[in-house]
Design a binder for these strands. Structure first.
Lengths: 247, 247
DNA sequence: GTAGTCTGTGTACATCTGTGCACTGAGTTC
DNA sequence: GAACTCAGTGCACAGATGTACACAGACTAC
């Protein structure tokens, strides 16, 4: 009866050499790193391994065992770091949005004219998408994915992102008198454009430079259309939203 | 050794009564329906069951056995209808985009003024999203989901959808002289807005009328901003795209 | 009516999964 | 240096999964 089970684990044990070479905390290191530091290191290894695996599958189909196998630890050790796969997912969202906020800061640090701002923003966006494609892919994939907790966490972060953008826009010359709703609409329109641009880049990716150039150009054109549209919008309706054609 | 396996199947066999009551092709029907018809019927039952299950999970985590269990057939019978779960997924995409095209037709069948067109389009969109929320949810979830084949199939359909919209727009008064790129940009901007609106509706859904009204209003505002933007765009750049601020 | 076709059944099995439990041994604290 | 902590191990197990195979029996074609 037990031979059955030993057999089941054969494939997993066969890769134990690989596991040893990949092991994040070599026994030889001994006193070189503190226990805390090493724990943090395997935690990061779990997150990195998960993110790498998520390149080709969605979170809901990612198993605890896959992650621990890739990270080079035994399945049960997972629980020393996370209660749950869901907790791992939330940690990944945290990490992902940290890089997204870094991007937003990079954009803000570039206060030029409107035209240049769009140009630069798109440039910085594409650069960041390439640099942290794993994070972007993960967020894009799970934004409407199968795990409710992750979906909601991402939704909250995206709304926060749009709000930040709205308050940023409010500070720009010419936007002082805008209503909150209009600013929010514009901001979320821009965020939607940015999101779909990022997703397009991720889909096209892997050395298709022509496609990428077109995506960039489309994104710029769209953002310009939006700014032109909102300018027109304000001059057409000086105080509030227009009566929707009499409806 | 074998007792182990019989035990494993216990839970599945316990629900066999349910399966019998749900059985799509009752033996008693006999000559009432042709064999072909009945085959088509279980095929549809598989697709419906899958779509229902996909409300709460992503396709990559949906198992063949779950689907057959819900459809009321034995796992191995699945292969009489599809080679593969992937084929089921592609069939679902086909079905989903048939309803989407029906929606587009409904919008086109409403040739009123620009303002009214936006108002009506959003109305029709939300109505369709509610009516076929399963299809919309599935497409939204798998558009950037874990299964490459589905992702690509959906991408192709969405591009087709945007192209159709672009040619539609080209026929409207005032758009005759537009370049293909500008029309495509505008169309995909609109599609992106529509998509994110549909996704917002799906997320908010379940009787939150206030949120839904706001989503509608935001969608209308955004679409109007876009049309205003492109109008401005054309008058600002009579022949081609403007030089991007000297870049 | 007989022979053939084909959808659905039932059993088997290898493989995967999450997680409980007792353990080891290096790192830390006193 | 003795006592304690705790990240990582190893084994066990129950349950789920995809799919091969032989079979049943209702529909179909002759």
């Amino acid at each position: 009866m037990y031979t059955d089970y030993t057999c089941r684990y054969l494939s997993e044990h066969l890769s134990s050499e690989i596991r040893h070479t990949r092991r994040v905390n070599s026994r030889a290191l001994s006193h070189e790193f503190s226990r805390q530091e090493r724990k943090q290191r395997t935690r990061q290894a779990l997150m990195d391994s998960a993110l790498a695996l998520l390149e080709n599958q969605s979170f809901s189909s990612l198993s605890l065992r896959q992650v621990t196998r890739a990270a080079g630890i035994v399945p049960t050790a997972f629980y020393r770091h996370f209660d749950d796969m869901e907790q791992l997912g939330l940690a990944l969202i945290d990490e992902s949005f940290r890089t997204l906020r870094a991007m937003a800061r990079a954009v803000r640090a570039d206060p030029r004219t409107n035209e240049r701002m769009i140009h630069n923003s798109v440039e910085i966006l594409i650069e960041h998408v390439h640099q942290h494609d794993n994070h972007f892919r993960f967020v894009a994939r799970e934004r409407f994915g199968g795990v409710a907790a992750l979906r909601h966490a991402i939704g909250a972060e995206v709304r926060l992102f749009a709000s930040d953008l709205a308050t940023d826009l409010a500070r720009l010359p010419g936007f002082e008198s805008w209503t909150t709703e209009d600013l929010q609409s514009m901001a979320s329109l821009m965020v939607a454009t940015v999101v779909s641009t990022a997703e397009a880049i991720l889909e096209a990716s892997s050395a298709d430079l022509a496609a990428e150039a077109e995506i960039k150009e489309t994104a710029r054109r769209q953002l310009r259309m939006i700014t032109l549209g909102v300018a027109q919008w304000r001059s057409a309706t000086p105080t509030a939203a227009p009566a929707d054609g009499g409806a």
